[in-house]
Design a protein around this nucleic acid. Structure first.
Length: 440
DNA sequence: CCCCCTTTGAAGCAA
DNA sequence: TTGCTTCAAAGGGGG
């Protein structure tokens, strides 16, 4: 797995944030390794392309092979499994490769179930910039400061505009070359982003209109989803490629008829559910309790999405549409396969996107650390791991998980019996979906 | 209502 | 330094 090469760029090293940069260091080695993998896996490029195509197809059809011990690898050959395992190990090395031969690339783009999946994978820093508002010191950074049109993950039902949605919007926001020149007006913010958080805590819609949230990720959204709306562009500058929006503070609440509450920043979400909020509001508690509550109610700054997460966000809808699957677990299996089927270049785009996203995230939340969110979720893995370990010790002959190259899976014992049925079901569904599609 | 599943990658943490 | 763990998204399924 690519690791941050913090030494390379240094703390103040501008955009040198991580993995992708280091990936460059791996490039040569990785290419060689990857070539070996490719050769060993498929031989001629054409065969490789076919293999990849079949893998992609199989991904829908036999993705179950990954999740079901003993379910068979389906079209996923041992070579592929090995290649994936190696590839995972050298994921970084897959990046920034030399351009693949045209026939190979064509082959990679040919898979039946992936028709068109590459066509819309247009990336730019603009996309990730939609995720995060610019830092308070906008303009201090060389990076383009985006209008931040990432409609996003509203904690309470407001949909998040994914990259996929963005690019598939009937009004796709062009990646403006002049984006850096078009600073969205926003009030000055103190470098201390804490105010940021407190102002965006749990009840965004109830906040006063003094919230100084950076430009909201609001822009014409796809009408395909009922809850999306086309916002007027009240402050659209002449010739602006996309509408400008009033400051979110003006949109908070429902002061604007027909407008939902402003969409909070994607990386900041209320930490707790409705129940907690209600109970908090309902009860007068001791100071200690209240303090603890407030602590717990601090909005959570989410981790920046990694390359694969970005890829999933973009491709999920497509996979769902193509395969008519809805279960995320199954979808993710397919996406995992497709991810491996991507060319280096395609993956590199996402790695680069993720790198920029981390960079932006770091700028926006200088003091933030993934540590902050540690332990906030159920530590099911640990518990499960312990249970599974016990089970594994009890039955060491249990087949190892076939999930390709999944480090966690490899490190984890065989999924316990309670998990197997569900996994089987999902895989079966995936297979059925694939079968139906092939018949069709 | 809340957790699980499932994926990969980044980062934290313990040894 | 290494290896393991947790979290990030997503949404149906199950308890």
């Amino acid at each position: 797995m690519p690791q941050l090469d913090s030494g390379g760029g240094g703390a103040g090293g501008g955009d040198d944030l991580g993995a992708p940069d280091e990936l460059l260091a791996f490039q040569d080695e990785g290419e060689e390794q990857d070539d070996k993998i490719r050769d060993s896996a498929a031989g001629p490029e054409r065969d490789l392309a076919e293999l990849k195509s079949s893998l992609v197809n199989e991904s829908e059809g036999a993705a179950g092979g990954a999740g079901i011990p003993g379910a068979g690898a389906g079209a996923l050959g041992e070579a592929e499994v090995g290649a994936e395992a190696l590839g995972r190990e050298h994921a970084a090395q897959r990046l920034f490769p030399d351009k693949l031969p045209e026939p190979l690339e064509d082959g990679l783009k040919a898979p039946e179930c992936t028709s068109g999946m590459y066509k819309e994978t247009v990336y730019s820093a603009f996309n990730l910039l939609m995720h995060y508002p610019p830092p308070s010191g906008a303009g201090q950074h060389p990076q383009p400061q985006p209008p931040l049109h990432k409609a996003n993950q509203p904690p309470h039902g407001v949909p998040q505009l994914s990259l996929y949605e963005h690019f598939n919007s009937p009004h796709p926001t062009p990646a403006p070359a002049d984006i850096s020149q078009k600073q969205v007006h926003r009030p000055l913010q103190t470098p201390d982003l804490s105010g940021f958080y407190s102002l965006t805590s749990g009840s965004m819609g109830q906040l006063p209109h003094t919230v100084s949230w950076p430009s909201p990720p609001l822009y014409p959204l796809s009408p395909s989803c009922g809850y999306r709306q086309h916002f007027p562009a009240p402050t659209a500058a002449p010739g602006a490629p996309y509408p400008r929006f009033t400051h979110p503070s003006l949109m908070l609440g429902s002061s604007v008829p027909g407008h939902p509450a402003a969409i909070p920043h994607p990386a900041i979400v209320p930490p707790s559910g409705k129940q907690e909020l209600q109970s908090f509001d309902r009860n007068l508690k001791t100071q200690a309790e209240s303090k603890a509550e407030k602590e717990a109610k601090k909005p959570t700054i989410k981790k920046p999405l990694n390359a694969f997460m970005l890829y999933m966000k973009e491709m999920r809808a497509k996979v769902i549409a193509e395969c008519t699957l809805k279960e995320s677990a199954a979808i993710n299996q397919i996406l995992g396969r497709r991810w491996h089927a991507l060319s280096r270049e395609e993956q590199a785009k996402y790695y680069e996107l993720a790198r920029k996203e981390r960079q932006l995230h770091m700028q926006l939340y200088p003091g933030w650390s993934a540590r902050d969110n540690y332990g906030k979720k159920k530590r099911r893995s640990r518990e499960k791991h312990q249970e599974s370990t016990t089970e594994l010790l009890a039955s060491p002959a249990e087949p190892a998980p076939t999930s390709p190259g999944l480090s966690t899976a490899l490190s984890l014992p065989t999924p316990g019996p309670p998990q197997a049925p569900r996994s089987t079901l999902q895989s079966t569904q995936v297979q059925q979906q694939e079968s139906q599609r092939q018949v069709a």
